[in-house]
Nucleic acid binder design. Sequence first.
DNA 1: TTGGAAAGTCAACAAAGCTGACTTAAAATT
DNA 2: AATTTTAAGTCAGCTTTGTTGACTTTCCAA
Lengths: 171, 171
Amino acid sequence: MVDRTTTAIGTGGESLLFLTDDQLRSGIEAMFFAYRGFTADPDRILQHYGYGRAHHRAVHFIKRNPGTTVTNLLNILGVTKQSLNRVLRTLMHDGWVESRVGIKDKRTRHLYLTDKGTALERDLSEAQKRRVRNAFRTAGPEAVAGFRKVLEHMMDPDLRHHYHATLEGTR
Amino acid sequence: MVDRTTTAIGTGGESLLFLTDDQLRSGIEAMFFAYRGFTADPDRILQHYGYGRAHHRAVHFIKRNPGTTVTNLLNILGVTKQSLNRVLRTLMHDGWVESRVGIKDKRTRHLYLTDKGTALERDLSEAQKRRVRNAFRTAGPEAVAGFRKVLEHMMDPDLRHHYHATLEGTR
DNA sequence: TTGGAAAGTCAACAAAGCTGACTTAAAATT
DNA sequence: AATTTTAAGTCAGCTTTGTTGACTTTCCAA
């Protein structure tokens, strides 16, 4: 019943048991269930404010890249202009985010969190970090290094630089 | 600018550099970008068939638990009955999934993939496994072990048994 | 035999994504 | 100077996937 063979043996003849179909399937399910946990806490908070996950993502990346332009955010988030615009409009209307016209290029709008927005972001990220911190602490530093390594290679190569960009100066 | 302190030092005084706020934030972003990649390939295929991610999840877990009941699937997927029902209805109508009335308990419906459905599931999971396999192979077995360990601790404890259940007999 | 659990249906709605067409303003290029 | 391109934003309309609440049918079990 259990398939241990399909991708178990590499061309070089090494055992590679971690690449069996069953290992891959269970890795896939781990991603599915872990992502559910990963978003659960912020989702609960957002619901209280009347926002969704899209708002969280926008607020997160504005916090990490203060003064980012709309186009840049579009590239990071990988959604359409209309979709992001809807989110940004409500965030600005409700006073969490503000946009300033660019000085060099007056077509661009630079996005910033207001004080209120900074507090919301802290709420959301604290909830999320609490869970990630627990998982990291329980699993230990070597597991965390492996976790990072696998995730990095799971990303789309075109998007990987957004991940790296935010680590500039931290390693 | 870069905060290395907030959660860097544990109560015992150990270094715990892997738990700095920056490490946690970048771990969070790794999850975000990796999950995008993780779903990208199946999403592309599903779009071709006119289905969405919810269909993939249903088909995946019916494949792994043939004969599962609707209620069981509800618990695994964590959605409402109505939401799942809409998906199952289209899958059954289009001939990918069939439901058989329970013998012991005729109220229950047991779900199975048809031959057609099995082929679709293979298409989807092959695409997804290709990416996970690449990531696993590139990162190596120790990284994969760490990846699993972290993800397992990121799940909701209530949901963790679904992940374990599917590994029964494989370890 | 009656109460309640399991499954399914219907209606109505919301969040968040999409396409396509369009405007305005500013920058860049010809 | 005129034209083209780019950045941002808007409008209309659509899809997927989730939600709640009310309801029926079936049928097991106390």
